[in-house]
Design a binder for these strands. Structure first.
Lengths: 343, 343
DNA sequence: AGGAGCAGAGAAAACCTTTTCTCACTTGAC
DNA sequence: GTCAAGTGAGAAAAGGTTTTCTCTGCTCCT
């Protein structure tokens, strides 16, 4: 047995295929073919090489391999979502989808700095990434960096992209319908909508879907993405004369939180008097409200998974149809509306 | 001018140094030396090569370069902090410190799955990372993966590591002192401490520092890391007979949030009647409380920066002293205590 | 027996860059 | 007019792997 007489092969550096070849008593080419399951050789030889490789702990150098194959099994994820509320679930989905294929992910947070973005893109290209996924915190804004005419494929996940690109985003209208229909199904008749700035595309989508079902008995209340706005909006509604809503559909979970707090301060019971539903299903927020918040989940992890599989397909040269793909939201039922999924 | 007659060099693939050499009418070696500012050659030649390279948009292939230099200018960040509350600031710091050096970061979220961790570590090693930074969500827990005896350096950032390793962590005792001394300075005399599970090292550190200053007039109240515990603890305190605290030092911002909510429900004014201070300075939480929460910031970004620079030094073969490095916390003053930094 | 065909395995090129070595030529000194 | 020293630039090897091509025997058929 030539192999096994060393735990720490004297020479410097990692174990290469050359060491495997020597230990197995074959040439480098034969070793390579044996390990990759290609080429012609005796079954006995192939097994011996494989065994030896395992014994001495050989792992192929991905750099060398990538140099030749022009595939680095690496992709870049570019995001301006510093806080990571949207990007992290997306990232988790991407990673989950790609780890099986041996692909690793460079994460680059570029804030909103075009120069920094440029630097990171160039660094990733230098490292021969197989593709780039652009991600953000807003569906109707682009990253501050030009990703057209890159030598690698690009897909966009939860961020705006150019017309002929592949874009994944949540179906906010469908998500809003889910929420409002749920309220209707629970018997609610006067449903208010307190949401973020009208300048946000998501806000308009959600408000549009809301209005289609709920009508215009209650006006949509646009504001900012903050608890304080939720509280203030409730104050406005309850200082008005006339009938009060029996349900409030909120543009995100922070607003919903403010709404719930304000309702409790007015001794209005949730969900008995008023049902509240949020958007984003930001667990750390939704689970800590009193009562826990029923909320629309945008399925960002699934979105990341799709984006990952798509960039992989593109990297492998498979054709992928361009266009916007809306992925469905789903409703996470907690206690702030009453009811349960079995009802 | 040989260069410039093509926007899209007919052949396939990216632009290599061979193209630069041809376009500049020199050999590959000369081109390389010119671009790297080494070797001997006429100043005119050097400038011409550089100019041509710029014109045709040459960028060296990092894979090829890494193959030779055995430096990939890539590091891995391993974390089990899925939610990213701790890892993201650390990551931002690392990235910020390393981008200037052309180093990119693989982010691998491994949940608490040892098998997944192993896969990611091996993938990173195959890709010849120059080093690995392990990070987590708890100072007294290790990642579920063995990082000893790796062929690359490892540093630990906000997670437990083996005795002879380089570990960066926040100085929680100092942070707690900062908070309590601030309360004392504002004239508070009965300071309570509502915090997380005693099993957490951070909790014991913070509680220890608290007790040293505040004494044992108020017992430390251990619970869970949730708003509900903050509310419940306040209920307990105010249902007891005897003098009530005039300040509450909370183990994290979520607890502080619950405390503030519970105090308001009792019509106890913050900060007039009771000062509240949190820990973590989790902005999205601290800024949305009423009033905004004064909180201890653990300086995770700086921690990441230090970890990044250290792994870089190790990768370059510079000696680095092993041991635990505690990085200082600082106090972010908002309104929940009264007072301002100028006082 | 002579050749076709095939099984098994190695040699060498290729990927792209860096670096060491070598070579040809010029200049200046004696 | 030689020699030494210096200048500018190219040839070649190295890094680890994959892949194509080539080579040597062997079997089997006629």
């Amino acid at each position: 047995m030539e192999a096994g007489l060393n735990l720490e092969e004297g020479k410097k550096g990692r174990i290469t295929i050359r060491d495997v070849a020597a230990a197995a008593g074959v040439s480098i080419s034969t070793a390579s073919k044996a390990l990759n399951g290609i080429g012609r050789m005796g079954e006995e030889t192939r097994e011996r090489v494989k065994r030896v490789a395992r014994e001495i702990g050989f792992r192929p150098n991905a750099l060398a391999r990538g140099l030749l194959s022009k595939r680095s099994f690496t992709i870049g994820l570019l995001t301006n979502d510093t806080y990571g509320r949207f990007t992290l679930p997306v990232m988790a989905g991407i990673s989950e989808a790609l780890v099986d294929h041996g692909v690793s992910v460079f994460l680059c947070a570029i804030e909103d700095d075009p120069a920094l973005g440029q630097i990171h893109v160039e660094a990733m290209l230098d490292k021969q990434v197989d593709g780039i996924i652009a991600s953000g915190k807003r569906l109707d804004r682009s990253l501050p960096v030009d990703l057209s005419n890159l030598p690698v494929p690009v897909v966009y996940a939860y961020t705006e992209g150019p017309p002929d690109s592949v874009i994944f985003r949540s179906d906010d209208a469908q998500g809003a319908r889910l929420a409002v229909e749920w309220l209707v199904k629970l018997g609610r008749r006067r449903i208010a909508h307190i949401t973020g700035p009208e300048s946000f595309f998501s806000v308009r989508e959600r408000a549009g879907a809301y209005a289609q079902i709920a009508g215009d008995a209650e006006p949509v209340m646009y504001g900012i993405w903050a608890e304080s706005w939720g509280r203030e909006a409730v104050a406005q509604i309850w200082s008005r004369s006339g009938e009060k809503p029996d349900a409030i559909f909120c543009g995100n979970d922070q607003i919903a939180r403010g709404v719930i707090d304000a309702l409790r301060e007015r001794a209005i019971r949730v969900p008995e008097d008023v049902s509240v539903v949020g958007f984003d299903n930001w667990e750390i927020m939704a689970e800590q409200t009193r009562p826990p918040l029923t909320s629309v989940d945008m399925g960002l992890k699934a979105l990341g998974r799709e984006a990952g599989l798509t960039i992989l397909a593109l990297a492998e040269g498979k054709p992928v149809e361009a266009g916007v793909r809306k992925l469905p939201c789903h409703l996470v039922v907690r206690e702030s509306c009453g009811g349960s999924l079995e009802d």
